[in-house]
């Protein structure tokens, strides 16, 4: 026998199920009055610093159908590349930008839509800069444990080419699944980020 390490086990995940919106975004599904606004539904105020952008997309299953019951969360740095978090050691982020957003996908089209700002760059562990990116997390019925991925920006080709995380993807053709093309025809510009759960275009998901 040896001494015990006394480490607990993480609580196992279970699917968020088809009714995750009751808990996360009740106002979006007509459960009004429990609380006034759903957390994460608005990311910007007039005082937020940074280039306004819109991120739109869908979560698509192995048969090519968009999920209409998914919940998508995003987490990102501010325009200067600082996270609004006590774990951020490098400085104080824009106090007008939390950097976290949460949306129920549209119950008919499956589309999610975040009005946010373009984040600055954040360093990798070894000090190299990562390309600007947004962390994306998806739960839904049929997803047994939340899926982590990242959105990179289509107009950051140089930064993306040197990104230490993207460089780790052996199958280079899969990098495109993480890069959202920029659509300048809208104001503010829209980055389109469709997430494919399976199939030839399966998005790269991370074990973080």
């Amino acid at each position: 026998m040896v001494q015990r390490l006394d480490i607990l086990k993480e609580t196992p995940s279970q699917t968020a199920g088809p009714y995750v919106h009751i808990g996360a975004t009740p106002n979006a599904i007509d459960i009004a009055g429990v609380w006034q606004t759903d957390l994460g539904s608005v990311m910007l105020t007039a005082e937020t610093t940074g280039e306004r952008i819109v991120v739109k997309g869908r979560v698509i299953d192995g048969a090519g159908r968009p999920l209409t019951d998914a919940l998508v969360e995003i987490w990102q740095a501010d325009a200067a590349g600082l996270y609004n978090s006590p774990q951020e050691p490098r400085g104080t982020a824009d106090r007008h930008f939390v950097g976290w957003g949460r949306q129920a996908v549209d119950r008919d089209t499956g589309e999610f839509c975040f009005a946010t700002i373009k984040p600055g760059s954040v360093p990798f562990g070894d000090g190299r800069l990562m390309a600007p990116h947004i962390t994306v997390w998806i739960v839904a019925r049929g997803i047994n444990i939340g899926l982590h991925t990242r959105l990179y920006f289509g107009d950051e080709a140089v930064a993306n080419a040197g990104d230490p995380v993207l460089l780790r993807i052996e199958d280079r053709s899969r990098i495109a699944t993480l890069v959202a093309p920029k659509d300048l025809s809208t104001d503010p510009p829209t980055y389109r980020f469709d997430i494919h759960l399976q199939g030839p275009q399966e998005t790269v998901f991370f074990d973080i």
Binding site: D61, G62, A63, L67, A77, Y83, Q87, E88, V122, P123, F124, G125, M130, A140, R141, G142, I143, N144, L147, V165, R168, I169, R174, L197, Q198, E202, T203, V204, F205, F206, D207, I208
Partner: peptide, 15 residues
């Protein structure tokens, strides 16, 4: 139809 089939990409924690 909702389960990724490729292995997850291991990523040590960054900020």
């Amino acid at each position: 139809l909702r389960s990724p089939q490729r292995p997850l990409l291991s990523l040590e924690n960054t900020l």
